[in-house]
Amino acid sequence: MDLSRRDLFKIGGKLLVLASAGATLEEIIGAAPPSQAYRMADHWWGMIIDIDKCIGCGNCVRACSQENHVPAGYFRTWVERYQVEEGKQPQVDSPNGAMDGFPPSKREDLKSFFVPKLCNQCASSPCVQVCPVGATFVSPDGVVLVDETYCLGCRYCIQACPYGCRYLHPEKHTVDKCTLCYHRITKGLTTACCESCPTGARQLVDFKNPKDPVHEFLRNNKVEVLKPYMATQAKVYYKDLDGAVR
């Protein structure tokens, strides 16, 4: 077959136009736009808690329990009330995890405040390190999760957690804990506790989102994580955390 240079260019040009049209068509018809799909690599979840805003209403505890079907008497999140007298051990109470709020404080002359607690979503978590079967792990988006089909119920992680955030589910006999409402945040919603907090004391944050208010919050406030000396790289930051809090 004789093919002149001119013919070759003609055929090549036609092929190029066809290929680019095909590619554009594929882009239009193709799967949902990338902004819709959840990409784990784009997120690194955590929470910020403003102690001075917490009123101890227990909304978060009830919301968590209803959203995640937490069995009665067990808590994925709870609220503690600290009452600190100078030179003495702090008194801490959390009646039923603050599910029904708190009875009024007996004394008014003490330093007192509420501290909401939940899984600290440690980036270097002791619970993950001790799991013998790989049932608990830090997800690529920074949430500590439990694979309940893999968990043996050995309770090793319950002992390892420095914050007491895990429990053995009384019916499933596997370990259960705060998932940072993974089923919600992957759908673009906030956690149940943050959704129901009336004062904005708790806020879900994404450290990988440059527009997230967390960056300003961390820059403008004095913050601390719980038990920093445990080197767990916790991602739940407390504003104005008192030294009495454990």
């Binding site: 959840y38 997800s139 694979d147 089909t149 998932t179 993974y182 089923h183 759908k187 919603l189």
Partner: peptide, 12 residues
């Protein structure tokens, strides 16, 4: 496990 957990139904 990630898909299993994120597939749970929401209440709020």
């Amino acid at each position: 496990a990630l898909d299993m957990i994120s597939a749970r139904p929401i209440s709020y």
